[in-house]
Design a protein around this nucleic acid. Structure first.
Lengths: 247, 247
DNA sequence: CGCTGCATTGAAATATCTCAATCAATGTGG
DNA sequence: CCACATTGATTGAGATATTTCAATGCAGCG
């Protein structure tokens, strides 16, 4: 099933079998895309939304000098730009990190699908809001943490999200992020990101980088403390949240 | 009409007369609240959402030391926590800045209202996404701008939002924000916020502070340049966005 | 008059950026 | 197999930006 990973580890069980099937039938096509070519550009009018089947993507805003600020990171099972469905345009660019596989949903088809189905509507709405909750936590990260805390916090988020989709085995997760990608996500210079990783290694929190192949975690609790990480924002929805205690 | 200002200056005209009326009838009550007492607390389960009729509110995440990061700012016409309707809980606190008037919408009542009304559903969904677009721009602000740029950018956003609801006359807007509130929103220390305001005054961009009564703007273009401000993210929705050119 | 809450200032301590090299791994063409 | 280019990681050193701590100023208010 294409949408196998959608909300996996969170609300997935709240989606009925029928709704899942309906969602699957609304898929227009599944294609391969590859960075650094943009999949969606800021401000262009769009008529489809993409669901990320496999691979990773980042969302960017550009500053005056051409440097990028990452405003989102998508993993398999995420919608990349479902918000363009009610919004018509995006306020940012979407770029595959490497090679990725996406399912295409036409907006008119989505509309047909959900207009008579408030339950499914609410689930899709929910998933865009989960995204918003993450972004809010990114603000916290940038506004209140030191460079070291920011990187640690971001790593914790990645761990948690990879765990949802069973791509984290307790010590390693694969993600094609370079140090400069961490820098763009955490609002620090690439050079400082490098020094920060060295600090994290010296503290025994993460292992030496495996290139851009992924990340080996040595002390998840230590990272959480350093990044003042509370995982709850990744859940939403009361009942399910109980599976993961706050803090 | 209570929801008079909802999406004013943006999508408001897209809401049909019937839908507006329906929305009005779903109001449970209108009450006065006052900060610094929290209106909604992080993680508590909620059954109502609030629409801000008058006054201002801020949304906060706390760090380890008890300092706050502002992750949102609401003006009259905004929903303060509509996202709790699909989410059940909030990931942050909501606090009136001063005295405010809010309309209460019970979630079960909202559900009845929109379940047979996909158009209205999409408008509410849209408004939560507009909120998300703003937050993304906040990330840009924190991640890519200097303290001076951040404050300028935030002021520009306030100008624009106050303009939508006709509370900005071209030189002044009323908002009970202290320098320390700007600091919490922009991720800088209160002391540095103070020095930054001095810089902005010295550059002739804003006038001497009027306490927490509001802000007098001397050079909006200058502020936009300094804050690398692009107003488009506040609009959403293709057609209407044309009213305000990009950049 | 003496609080109290905010704005302001100074000075030293830190954190982060920038610029400029260097290094290591990888791939490519000959 | 070698010379070379490319990409990303690493390091050093000086310049800037921002924080922190500690006072001071200033206005409204009981």
């Amino acid at each position: 099933m294409i949408t196998e990973l959608f909300l996996k580890g969170r609300l997935r069980d709240a989606i009925s079998v029928d709704d899942r099937a309906a969602l699957e039938t609304a898929i227009e096509d599944v294609i391969e895309v590859e960075g650094p070519r943009r999949l969606v550009s800021r401000a262009e009018e769009v008529e489809v939304s993409y669901y990320l089947v496999d691979g990773y993507m980042a969302r960017y805003l550009d500053d005056k000098r051409g440097y990028r600020q990452s405003v989102g990171f998508q993993v398999p099972g995420d919608w990349v730009d479902l918000h363009s469905f009610p919004m018509k345009r995006l306020d940012h660019d979407v770029v595959p990190l490497d090679r990725a596989k996406v399912a295409i949903f036409r907006h008119d088809r989505l509309r047909e699908l959900i207009d008579g189905n408030p339950r499914l509507t609410r689930i899709l709405w929910f998933s865009t809001l989960l995204d918003a909750a993450m972004i809010r936590e990114w603000i916290f990260r940038l506004g209140r943490l030191s460079a070291e805390g920011r990187i640690a916090h971001f790593i914790c988020e990645l761990i948690e999200r990879m765990r949802f989709i069973e791509r984290y085995d307790g010590t390693f997760f694969p993600v094609p992020l370079k140090q400069s990608d961490f820098a763009e996500a955490c609002g620090v210079s690439p050079v400082h990101a490098n020094r920060t990783f060295k600090l994290l290694r010296d503290r025994g929190l993460v292992a030496a980088s495996e290139g851009a192949g992924g990340m080996r975690i040595l002390d998840e609790d230590g990272l959480r403390r350093l990044g003042e990480f509370r995982g709850d924002y990744l859940y939403g929805e009361g009942d399910l949240k109980l599976q993961q205690p706050f803090g």
